[in-house]
Design a protein around this nucleic acid. Sequence first.
DNA 1: AGCATACGAGACACGAACGTCTCATCGATT
DNA 2: AATCGATGAGACGTTCGTGTCTCGTATGCT
Lengths: 183, 183
Amino acid sequence: MSLDREELLGTAAEVLTRRPTSSMDEIARAAGISRATLHRHFAGRDALVRALEDLGLRRLDAALDAARTEEGDAAEAVRRVVAQAEPLAGFLAFLVTENQLFEPGEQHPGWERIDARIAALFRRGQDEGTFRIDLTPAWLTEALYALITAAAWAVQDGRVAARDSVRMTVELLLGGARRSMER
Amino acid sequence: MSLDREELLGTAAEVLTRRPTSSMDEIARAAGISRATLHRHFAGRDALVRALEDLGLRRLDAALDAARTEEGDAAEAVRRVVAQAEPLAGFLAFLVTENQLFEPGEQHPGWERIDARIAALFRRGQDEGTFRIDLTPAWLTEALYALITAAAWAVQDGRVAARDSVRMTVELLLGGARRSMER
DNA sequence: AGCATACGAGACACGAACGTCTCATCGATT
DNA sequence: AATCGATGAGACGTTCGTGTCTCGTATGCT
């Protein structure tokens, strides 16, 4: 009956991904515990969201590790990143919109590190001559996030087949980032 | 002092674009009227959001008209669409996230028409041989929305220069959509 | 068996935002 | 000048989510 704190975070992420406005009570019910117990684990909604932010960063970090961003062809590495990050899309979208509500400047510093890892991948591709240099790594990173979440929503709404999601995302992203001579 | 209903909608759109959680009172203050008067124009928050949805659709429609989506080279038409829609990015992002909270199925039917107009442009490009056919028009439409809003956020956060916004968006989108032989 | 810890259920107060209403005032029209 | 309509200010009740608390119970450990 009693859940590990980590599992608790997992189900909270699930519920809030489905409906970002879910109340503490709904989250507790979904986890099979009472609201009181949820409060015993997390002081309040803020604390829970902060913990979820940590979880998201850990998961994304793990995804980047699994994608081996520093190995092999940069384009292939991007493909692996998209494939690894795709299951996290909905959850990350929740965190982003949640961050949007906070005051600017107090965002979790962990995001910068993640951004830097992805941007470094694009920069490597530019240095190796695979990616065009007239699009900045920062923009390509932003576009990667945007396309992954867009693909997740499109799948959820039935506008894109789930099995095509990763391919569509990667093809559009790489097609834009790849230099013409590499095609 | 007294505002036209249309101007009222405009400032409401502005305020909610900046902070999607703004209260009715904040919206009224920003428009220079009282909460009571705001309620005289719009029965409630729901009604206001619906009216804003209409406004967004009208603006986007006008943007597509101005972009002359059915004229000339499809790639150039896409460029014009992005340029025309870019100023609407923040506002549209608000509407999308607001729609996300509604129950599925009760979304404004106007969106389908807009989607169809943009998808038709991509389909035309495919028929004319300018765009690759392994990415569906529906996905390219989705990607267009996603990249425009991503660019707006990136500009707002200082990660992309405002004057590069349209170019970066178009280059990435077209680079991905354009067939390799067209490069 | 005894005890400690964690849990569920529920009650309570607080705050925020909403929707409704009243009333006084201001301005424009006639 | 008189009147009508729209407005601003504010009070009021309601709803919803939150955070805190208590109390009875169950689970698990010694």
